[in-house]
């Protein structure tokens, strides 16, 4: 394997969890709900995934548990923000705090237990191609799944009536409600989808990327996923671009550290966070005067009247 191949491969594995979490949150925000609990849902996915995988010895069950944990967390958030119309920012923050704590409790018995990662899928013959073979045709199922998910979400949001209704709930819930659409139920479904995606992203971290559990292993990835959604102007394919850009930065930083670049390692480690700020600033500067791109009703609770 050449160095270029190795770098591309690691970029893809670093980007996939960001992409999975971002595409889920994108759907949530398109429905008008701002869930800042991505980090909490993700780390619960990581902890439950690794716990169930170790106990049952099955990676598949681990992934299922991770998705379930993400959805359970999302349901808790939905109960508060949709059922009780609480402040979404505060509820999202508490979801993150709660998730960081609970994942530590769930994961505590499994600290230091290592297991084999999930095998990659090799497409016969095609994976033998130089350069693009290993990159495109020798990946783990999550990578293929994440790309399919982006395509599916893009198709759903812009090519189906249900997608149109979901976006309407995010732009103008009052009108959607007046037309007879169950705004809260649609938002609930979107929030659950976001939770499932965040749980899956967590499973990728603890079952594939580093196949063991450490407390706080998401290290802000959930927050970076939220930034990617803004960066992508709430567009699925652009979210994929954003996720790969951020993944690339993280890997670049790691390679610079191992190559012994003469700057403090802490500065390199801070780069993804600093560049998130720079990226958000640049995108907002470019968008200046270009009107509002965020869903109009994003973050505003909706209480239907009868």
């Amino acid at each position: 394997m050449t160095l270029a191949e190795a770098i591309f491969l690691t970029v893809i594995t670093a980007s996939t969890p960001l992409l999975l979490a971002a595409i889920g949150e994108l759907v949530v925000e398109r429905s008008g709900v701002l869930n800042l609990g991505v980090e909490g849902m993700m780390i619960m996915g990581a902890a439950s995934g690794v716990a169930v995988a170790i106990v049952t010895g099955s990676s598949v069950l681990g992934v299922v548990a991770a998705i379930g944990a993400g959805m359970a967390m999302a349901a808790l958030f939905a109960l508060l923000t949709l059922g009780l119309a609480t402040n979404q920012v505060a509820a999202g923050l508490s979801l993150t705090i709660f998730g960081l704590g609970l994942s530590g409790v769930v994961g505590a018995p499994f600290v230091g237990m290592q297991r084999a990662g999930i095998a990659k899928i090799e497409v016969p013959f095609l994976s033998e191609l130089p350069l693009i073979g290993p990159i495109l045709f020798r990946q783990d199922p999550f990578v293929y799944g994440s790309v399919a998910l982006v395509a599916g979400v893009a198709w759903f949001l812009w090519r189906t009536k249900a997608g149109l209704v979901l976006r309407a709930c995010g732009e103008n819930p009052v009108s959607a409600h007046a037309l007879g659409y169950p705004v809260l139920r649609i938002r609930f479904a979107a929030v659950l989808f976001g939770g499932a995606c965040a749980g899956l992203a967590g499973a990728y971290l603890s079952l594939v990327l580093t196949p063991f559990w450490t407390a706080g292993m998401t290290a802000g990835r959930g927050w970076i996923a939220l930034a990617i959604v803004v960066f992508a102007s709430w567009l699925p394919w652009r979210a994929m671009l954003g996720a790969y850009l951020f993944g690339g930065l993280i890997i670049l930083q790691l390679h610079a550290q191992t190559a012994g670049v003469r700057v403090p390692s802490q500065l390199l480690a801070a780069l993804p966070y600093l560049l998130t700020i720079v990226a958000l600033t640049v995108i907002m500067a470019l968008r200046r005067g270009g009107g509002q791109v965020a869903p109009q009703a994003l973050g505003r609770p909706f209480v239907p009247d009868r």
């Binding site: 909490g40 808790l76 508060l80 009780l84 609480t86 402040n87 505060a90 509820a91 923050l93 508490s94 979801l95 705090i97 709660f98 998730g99 960081l100 704590g101 609970l102 994942s103 530590g104 409790v105 505590a108 407390a215």
Partner: peptide, 18 residues
Amino acid sequence: PRDMTLVFQGMLLFYILA
């Protein structure tokens, strides 16, 4: 586990919002 404290704090914030 020390994270138990975070669990209670998160739970408290949930309840106060509700």
